[in-house]
Nucleic acid binder design. Structure first.
Length: 362
DNA sequence: AAATCGGGGCA
DNA sequence: TGCCCAGATTT
């Protein structure tokens, strides 16, 4: 195949040679890189999106134990996959992974596509992940440009353009392409990412031990702390959330969120935004009535939980409630209502807020 | 091009 | 607190 490259020794540019030598010495062991299989690398790359290596490590071990191969993943039901993903966030990754597994089994006979272009057609695999998997598993010479690589190259080349712009990312990809063709593509991609994680860090980079320091433009021009340039998202608003923790004869009333949108498919205690100027207990009663159909008596407050999402923050004030009448009937913001025991609750895929609240009452 | 989509780690 | 993290998808 044309894209296959043999390890070609030190035929790269001087900075590439230094980079690869540094990588061989300082790379962190990662279980999914140990005799990498397409499935293991795929799972790891999905988990590693916007998630640090240390966070992924235990989750990866548990996930591949629970779903050892693409067939096992394909036949699982989505709630089980979400449960194994619990706590990782960005749950669309888990839903896409599950859809992709079914597609691999139904359309490709259980075989992952071998090329970056082929991988790119699977749900959840975009420009970065397709390049990472194809280079690591099959040695395809295609740059995997993630946040680390953007930062490393923006500094190394003194690029002051906004790295959030597609044109800047393309320019960095174009810069890397001729270099990756000359060396081991798997090592090249991993080395740049590992350098970004360990040395060329966002804050307090370790330029003194950096293998690229000699030719680094940011270092020469004293702009290391100014690069990369990144457009910032504005801080979102804050909401007060009223939550009804309804307990009845050893069971709690839980609600499953709609499959699409924020925290899709996850379970939580019925909740909603408190209106401006609305009394909190009144808000709990209103939300219980609107979302569950029940009339409730509001009891004692449970410990407050704060949580920050990407674009807004919430303060959740859960209140213990008793059913005072009414018939169960789900509101528009709920896909399913269910009375569950403590053990059943523990088996559901929960939001972080729901987990925090549950810990306080069970 | 901009918005949406979590949760953990760190100064 | 604010920023970052081996980003992808939708609008």
């Amino acid at each position: 195949m044309a894209f296959m490259q043999k390890k070609s020794g030190n035929r790269g540019a001087a900075w590439v040679v230094a980079l690869l030598r540094w990588f061989r010495r300082h790379r962190r062991p990662m279980p999914w890189r140990d005799g990498p299989t397409p499935y293991a690398v795929w799972i790891s790359e999905m988990m590693l999106q916007q998630t640090q290596v240390a966070t992924v490590m235990p989750k990866f071990a548990h996930f591949v134990m629970r779903f050892p191969d693409v067939q096992a993943l394909a036949v699982a039901d989505e709630q089980a996959v979400l449960k194994a993903w619990e706590g990782l966030g960005y749950y669309a990754r888990a839903r896409n992974l599950h859809r992709a597994a079914r597609k691999v089994v139904s359309e490709f006979g259980g075989q992952m596509p071998c090329t970056a272009d082929g991988l790119r057609a699977l749900p959840g695999i975009g420009a970065y992940a397709s390049a990472a998997i194809a280079s690591i598993v099959h040695g395809e010479a295609v740059p995997a440009v993630d946040g680390n690589v953007l930062r490393v190259i923006a500094r190394f080349r003194g690029i002051a353009d906004d790295i959030m712009r597609p044109a800047t990312r393309q320019a960095i990809y174009d810069f890397l392409l001729p270099h990756i063709r000359r060396v081991n593509p798997s090592y090249f991609n991993q080395a740049l990412m590992e350098l970004g994680a360990l040395v060329c860090r966002p804050r307090k980079p370790l330029c003194g031990v950096c293998p690229l320091a000699k030719a680094c433009v940011a270092r020469r021009t004293q702009r290391v702390d100014k690069l990369p340039v990144k457009s910032r998202a504005k801080a979102g608003p804050h909401h007060d959330i009223a939550m009804a923790v309804v307990h009845r004869r050893g069971r709690w009333l839980m609600a499953r969120r709609p499959a699409q949108g924020l925290l899709g498919g996850l379970w939580e205690f019925p909740q909603g935004r408190r209106g401006a100027g609305e009394d909190h207990a009144a808000a709990v009663m209103r939300i219980a009535r609107e979302e569950t159909g029940l009339r409730v008596r509001v009891g004692l407050p449970l410990p407050t939980v704060k949580h920050a999402f990407s674009h807004f923050r919430i303060t959740v004030r859960p209140m213990a409630c008793e059913r005072a009448g009414g018939r169960l009937r789900r509101g528009h913001a709920i896909a399913e209502l269910r009375w569950v025991t403590a053990e059943e609750l523990d088996a559901l895929p929960l939001t972080k807020v729901a987990r925090d609240v549950a810990r306080g009452i069970i």
